[in-house]
Structure formats: C-alpha cells, structure tokens
Design a protein around this nucleic acid. Structure first.
Lengths: 351, 351
DNA sequence: CGGAGCAGCGTGAGCGCTCACAAGCATTGG
DNA sequence: CCAATGCTTGTGAGCGCTCACGCTGCTCCG
C-alpha cells in the first residue's frame, strides 16, 4: 500500500499544501487577526503599526514559527541580503594566510549583525571572474568586498561597469577604477619597523618586499625607503613573488646572496617572514643575534615562529569593521570614502 | 485591441524601462522570437526545445546581456542555490587553521561548478546558531556543511529537526543525530604514524591528543593505542583543549612533566605540533635527535616548521569533493552514505 | 463645529520566474 | 488516408512578498 500522505512526485498542485512548506505571511496575519500589510510593516521596522497590532504579530510570529521567504522579499525589494567576499588572488592564498581567515570571520560576524550574509567567491580564473560578474550584474549580491587586488586585475574594471557597490580591502592599484578602499597604513607601519631596526644599531638593513604588482607592498617598500634614504639601495631589496612562505624563503635566499653582510631585514608580511626565517636558519644566521627580522601583519603565526616574530600590527578587526561599514553606506546609496587605519609595532624576540 | 498610447492608470511598462532594470526573460523571448516558456526551458537544460529555438535563445541571451533573477527562480523552485558552510567551532579556529581555508576553498570551487555558492556562517554563539537554524528553516540555503562539531553541540540536533540536508565534515559525535559524514581515516592515520615512530626505535612514545569532546581526536587517540597497547598508559597522553598552537604548547609542556623520558610524540594536529615544537625547544629537547615529533593533517604549515614536520596527510581536496558530492545527492533527494578516506604518511625531518 | 491632517490598516497589483497543461504540428502505422 | 503518437511551443496561474493607494476614524485648529 502506498501511504497517500507521502508527497507524490507528480501531483504538485494539491500535494503542495500537504508538503511541509512553512507558514506564509498570510498565515501569520490570520493568527494575529490583522492583514498581510500590517505583518509586513511590523516585520520591517514597525512604523505605522499600533502597539497592540505589533504585539499580536509578534505572538503570531512565534506561535506559527514563521520564517520570511527571502526570495520573495528580494524579488520585490531587489536586495539579496548577501555580499560577495571576492578573493582575486591565486586560490593558494586562502590556503595559507591567517590574515584572510581573520578578515572573513570578522566580516561574517559584522555582516550578520546587519542581516546580511557573506558569500565566498574565488576569482582566480577567467571563469570564476565571469561568475562574480554574473552575480553582480544579476543582483545576486548587494555588494562586493574585493580582497587582494593585483595591478591590472581585469575584474576591478569590469566590476565597475556593473555599478554594484564595491569596497576594496587594502590599497587598490593606482590605475584601476577608483573604488573606495580600507587599508592599514602600510607606509607608516613600514617606517615604524624600519626605524625600530635602525634604532637597534643595525647598519645594513635589507627588506623582503611584497609582490611588485600589489599596491600595499609598494607602500611598505616606500616606507622602508622613507627611513633609509639612499641606504635603501637596490642591493638590499628583494621582491617576493607572492605572499607565501616559499616566496619568502626564496627572496631571503636571494637577499643573502646580493647582500651577505645584512644584519637586519624588514619582511613585508608575516608569512613571508616564516620563509625568511627558514632561509636564515639554513644559512646559519642566528635571529636576532646575527640578523634582526621584522614582519608585517601580526597574523596568528607571528607569535609562533622561532623566535617569535616582531611585527607590525594591522588592526584587522577594525579593517573588517570599516569594510563592512563602507560597503553598507554604499549599498544604501550614500557616498563613502576610503579609510586608512593606523598600525602599531608589536615587539617580540626576532627584533 | 489595447491602445498602448493610452495612459493606463497603472502603466508600469514605460516606467519600468526607464528604471533600467536588467532585461527579463520576456525581453529575451521577444528578441529570440519565442515565448517565455521556451526561454525557460532552454535555460534549464534545453530538453524539448528545437535546435533552432535553442540557438535563437542563446543569441538573444548574449545580445540582451540577460542575467537570470535568482530570487524569482528560487521563489518558485524553492531552491536557493546556496549552501551554508557552518563553522560550529570557536571563531578563533578559522583564524588560524590552514586546513579550514583549504577546505573552504575547494568546496567553493566545486560548488561553483555545480552552480551553487558557499555562504560562510559562524555558529559559535547561541545567536549565531539561531541564525543558521533560521536560514535552514527559511530555505535560504539548500543544505549545510557542518564543520568541526563538538560532542553535545546543540546545533546538530536542531538542524536535524529542520530536515535540511546536512553533511558533517569529520567524524561526528557518536550520540548526535546520524548525519552522513566525510572524514579522513583518523584511526588508521594515527596507527601509521605511531608505527612509524615505534619503527624508528623509540621506546617511550607519547601523544598530544585532540580535545576530548571531538570525535576525530578520539579516533586518533584510539589509533595510537591500537599500536602501543598497554604501553599507551595515561602518563603518555595529554589532551589539548583546542586545536590551536597555544593548546599544543600547553599540552606538550604537561607531557614533559608527566613523562620526562619521552623520546617521541604523536601530535594530533599540525597546529598543535607547532605549539609542541615550541615547548620542546623551550625545554631544550632537540627534534628529531632527542624527540621525534609526528603531526596530523599535512596542512600548509607542516613544511614550514622547524624542523619540517613529518605528518599524516588528510586528502583534503578529496574530503571537500566528497562533502560536496554527498550534499548534492542529499539535496537532490537521493540517499547518501558516509565516507572515510585513506590517509598517508608524509615524511619530513621531525620524525 | 466642520474640515484638514494623519496614524493605522487593508487591498490590489505586480516583482520575474517555473510548471502544468493544452494546442499545434509532424511523423508513423494500420 | 486517418488515427495515434510524440515532440515542440505558448499560456495561465501562481510562488510570497512589498509598496502605493485609499479608506476609516481620530485629533486639532480655525
């Protein structure tokens, strides 16, 4: 025997009711003894609703276990309630860097407080980029948080055309579209660290700089130069090809080659510094005795290196907060401007 | 018939065009010279559509720049096209562990291939958990990927009541709801490592086990015991309180206290091992000369420790693939069973 | 004391899509 | 040569919500 209460695959019409779909606004209205419109108003801030009606609606909400149908709402409001967190870097980045994790986590939290959700999207390949664009154009997301943008990234320009609100995390390339951005003060942070290194009496200070095609790295290098002036010769600068441990090791190895007498090194990110420490150890240089090492980010890995890494703290929670704030403003149609947040030196044992 | 120049009281048509909303399916249909229905069919697999109509629709799609309105579609299909990636652990976890990053990345990619997106949701606090439940009940997500579940996590049971498809990553608690899960073979991996340690002639082998309230950790401990038998006394086991560097350091410190003569240690995760290495260094024990250290996960940090960490590889890309596969099956209404994937030993210098 | 103004509420008209249905047409077999 | 069959297509009816509008009944001022 077939249990006729079981949802039959074909008979949509009638069985639909039988199928457990949640209560609708109409159901809530009936229970509360008001109309759909009043329930809707109550749900959206409660303006122009009498206290009694409001209370009745809230009771009904609870007793029916009503959950709003976001699709129906989005259909008319044209707001999806979601934000894309777009990683335009090579996918490996997410794989390693704790900074990204921290950022995502805080953004997710703050977005949730505002009733929005975070959609993770990768944009490393052309197809992935096309998908992001598609989402933006189709209104599947209300805004985009663009993370780790390289110079010449085609996504930024294309995103600009969709007219979807975009905020960039970190300083964006100078020649891309002028999106508002939120960044730590990379240049000043680099100055802080370089000054610290010089202040410890080191004479031959080198740097492992970030990838050439990322604006944040350029800022950090500039800060380094600000302090060292002409002493910041080519010889003491090695560019990493990416923000990874391996790239840090490679760059440090090159540096030891071009500048064997270095006695301090400012490394443009903690992850790079992990690699740099490896290279130094491999070369038999003691840290901090022979060589002082300073990182950047104060990511979760910094206290765990050998020796613990002296670094420059990016106020990541604040970066996330401002990112969400700026994007929220933009989504609400209000203009918003870029923000640069102060950094601070965190002293540990490596320098 | 209808005089379209006549000012119809509610003539939205004209105003709509003025508002620059994207083209709708109706627009595409008009351009293609077919009906809405045909466009819809063409978009959804193209069954029962003539080749000519299909071609016309595709041209029209391109020329109009049409993007489907996901809300409208979801409203009727009751499919959101999104999956929640729920982190039920303390938020810090995401902050640190590269394993999670790798998992998220691969899941995002694979989900995208299937036309779905990944929503990151935290579930550390009661409010956050409520939000996840709300999403599940409201159909805002088609399914849930539940990561790092503790024993007694209330979310799992509540999620079960919503009848939303759920897949657990890692072995779930034994007494929770019986969701399908995808996990690495923790027990066998632990055996592999323990045998390796014993095979190198070490006599006093200890272990830093995972938190007591997580099933995966229990499995790893069991594998350790399988090999060591009665030698796996209480004295050689220290439980970490979480999968973090700090917890690893603490546990290792305790271990050195209760079992000063240990000459090898199996640490239940790479992140814990980073902490353990610190503690050993601090205690003046050389690795691997005095103490062999074996980790678990083969996360991005493993090759970067000092010395590079010998560990057990979890096939993370496969875990992610199976996770997505199982969830897809479940969402399609097909039953799916749990999967346990093989692990392998990765030899580096620490053991 | 009458009407303007307004808060509170209900109603109708969609938002853009999918799905069932029926109609149209070509193909095939009896 | 017509009925039966199957493929292709168009159409109507919503999915559950918001929003503009209009109605009611009250307050308040001229």
């Amino acid at each position: 025997m077939v249990d006729d209460t079981a949802p039959h695959p074909k008979s949509r019409g009638a069985a639909r009711r039988a199928q457990r779909r949640g209560p609708t606004m109409e159901d809530v209205a009936e229970v509360a003894g008001v109309s759909r419109g009043t329930v809707s108003r109550a749900l959206n801030g409660g303006a122009h609703v009498s206290p009694e009606a409001l209370a009745a609606v809230h009771d009904a909400l609870r007793s029916t276990g009503y959950v709003i149908n976001q699709s129906a709402r989005s259909l008319v409001t044209r707001r999806s309630g979601a934000v894309a967190f777009v990683l335009s870097d090579a996918p490996d980045r997410l794989f390693e860097d704790p900074v990204l994790g921290a950022l995502m986590r805080t953004c997710t939290q703050l977005l949730a407080e505002r009733g929005s959700s975070l959609m993770l999207m990768l944009a490393g390949t052309p197809q992935e980029r096309e998908r992001v664009l598609h989402f933006a154009r189709g209104g599947h997301v209300d805004g985009v948080l663009l993370v780790s943008v390289h110079d010449g990234d085609p996504l930024a320009a294309q995103l600009h055309e969709t007219r979807v609100p975009v905020v960039v995390c970190g300083r964006p390339p100078s020649r891309g579209p002028a999106f508002p951005y939120v960044a730590a003060d990379d240049r000043d942070g680099a100055r802080l660290m370089t000054r610290h290194l010089a202040g410890r009496g080191r004479r031959r200070i080198a740097t492992v700089a970030g990838p050439r095609d990322m604006a944040g790295g350029a800022e950090r290098l500039q800060g380094f130069r600000d302090v060292l002036g002409r002493r910041a010769s080519r010889r003491v600068i090695a560019h990493a090809t990416a923000y990874t441990i391996d790239a840090g090791r490679d760059a440090m190895t090159r540096l030891l080659d071009t500048c064997p007498d270095l006695d301090a090194v400012f490394v443009a990110s903690d992850l790079l510094a992990v690699g740099a420490l490896q290279a130094l150890r491999h070369a038999g240089r003691a840290v901090p005795a022979d060589v002082l090492v300073g990182g950047f980010d104060d990511s979760a890995i910094a206290p765990a290196t050998t020796p613990p890494l002296t670094t420059v703290r990016q106020p990541l929670p604040r970066v996330a907060a401002e990112l969400v704030e700026v994007l929220t403003q933009l989504i609400a149609g209000r203009p918003a401007s870029s923000r640069v947040l102060p950094t601070e030196l965190v002293l540990r044992e490596s320098a």
